[in-house]
């Protein structure tokens, strides 16, 4: 079973500050990491491979330094990785075309896994775009996957219902955060991963021409969250409660 996992490098969104003067989010100096749900996708890929044999390949379009974060996924148990460095303007159209170019270079595949959405942009676009460009079925929001030799069954969590879908291979599946608990690699795993191959292919090597973005960012503004922050602590519960009730009374909500 050949499984490809699309993984994205993002900045840690929790640490983003808004510059009070410019009202812009400050992105410099933040830690990079793999988008959280992509680790669930890698975990699921490893689980299926361990059961059925085959290999797990990571593919990423991202900055050239992303080899560092990709290593974490190799340490988890993925077999190899392909990084397509891209630092210029991009949108989902551009990224999906580059990913398709890379996937075609990788050869035969049975399952492509993505996260349900990336944590920084939360669009859920790449999975369905890749599936359409490869003309294969998609099973999105899978909270459980069962892979047989001939077919795969996925339970899609749509909130108000669970829809069970069966598909032959190849198929693209996007997973939810609840599907599994991604493993933490041990020190041995991390050391072992140092020898696993990370191939780097330039954009020109995977597509004949990189398209221009269909969506252009014209402005990003910070959303400030100023709150009163009146916290009642280090006092008996009864006292804290009466102060809160008094405050809520003044706010006119009681």
């Amino acid at each position: 079973m050949n499984i490809i996992v699309c993984a994205k490098q993002i900045v840690n969104v929790t640490d983003i500050r808004i510059d009070k003067k410019t009202n812009k989010p400050v992105l410099q100096g933040l830690d990079n990491k793999i988008s959280d749900i992509d680790k669930n996708a890698v975990e699921e890929a490893i689980r299926v491979r361990d059961e059925k044999g085959g290999k797990v390949t990571i593919i990423m379009v991202g900055p050239s330094e992303a080899t560092e974060t990709v290593k974490e996924l190799l340490a988890m148990g993925a077999d190899e990785a392909l990084l397509i460095p891209w630092d210029q303007d991009y949108d989902y159209h551009v990224v999906s075309e580059l990913l398709i170019g890379g996937i075609k270079k990788l050869g035969d595949y049975d399952i492509i896994l993505c996260g349900e959405a990336s944590l920084d942009l939360f669009s859920g676009q790449i999975g369905p775009r890749v599936a359409e460009l490869l003309d294969i079925p998609q099973i999105t929001y899978a909270q459980e996957i069962g892979a047989d030799d001939e077919k795969v069954v996925g339970d899609r969590n749509l909130g108000d219902s669970i829809v069970t879908v069966e598909s032959s291979y190849p198929v693209l599946i996007t997973v939810t955060k609840e599907i599994n608990e991604p493993r933490l690699p041990s020190l041995m795993d991390i050391l072992g991963a140092a020898n696993k191959p990370i191939e780097i292919l330039e954009a020109d090597d995977v597509v004949s021409e990189v398209s221009s973005p269909t969506v252009e960012t014209i402005d990003i503004t910070g959303v400030s969250m100023d709150r009163k922050n009146i916290i009642y602590e280090e006092m008996p519960v009864g006292e804290a409660v009466s102060k809160l009730v008094e405050s809520l009374g003044k706010e006119g909500v009681i």
Partner: peptide, 12 residues
């Protein structure tokens, strides 16, 4: 960015 910013975008 999980609610920290608003992006204004243009479709080309």
């Amino acid at each position: 960015f999980s609610g920290k910013a608003v992006a204004k975008e243009k479709i080309n």
